[in-house]
Design a protein around this nucleic acid. Structure first.
Length: 118
DNA sequence: ATAATGACGTCGG
DNA sequence: TCCGACGCCATTA
């Protein structure tokens, strides 16, 4: 089936322009899932990876880091409900605004209650 | 090709 | 509950 791989054609755009060799497919899938998380709910990086069935938590984190802009990235955090340092300043207020269940202290999300069952 | 790094996860103390 | 160590996956030096 098929011809594939016409390497002789100079027209192949290729696009290894820069990094992000993560298949756009994967990146799009991640962004899609994140965008689907309703306000007040969250998912861990591992949850997203497990949901997609490929890659790992770190891969998901990389996608959000590189192409995270445009989606509610704060709804994806660590499995223990903590947020990467540097993002708390932006994420915590968002949780309060969305009514996301927080643990005592208000520095971590109450995962058992806030985890989205997509 | 190997080592180091990162928006992670799990285990042991 | 807090901290450190090791494992995973993909990218970069």
């Amino acid at each position: 089936m098929a011809p594939r791989r016409e390497v002789s054609g100079p027209g192949q755009p290729r696009r290894p322009r820069r990094a992000a060799a993560l298949p756009d497919d994967f990146a799009e899938a991640v962004l899609e899932v994140v965008a689907a998380i309703p306000p007040g709910r969250v998912l861990s990086y591992g949850d997203v990876a497990e949901y997609l069935g490929v890659g790992g938590p770190r891969s998901v984190g990389r996608v959000l880091s590189t192409r995270g802009s445009g989606v509610p990235w704060w709804r994806v955090l660590r499995a223990d409900g903590s947020v990467a340092d540097g993002l708390q300043e932006l994420a915590l207020p968002a949780y309060v605004a969305e009514g996301t269940p927080l643990r005592a202290g208000g520095t971590r999300v109450d995962m058992p209650r806030a985890r989205w069952d997509g």
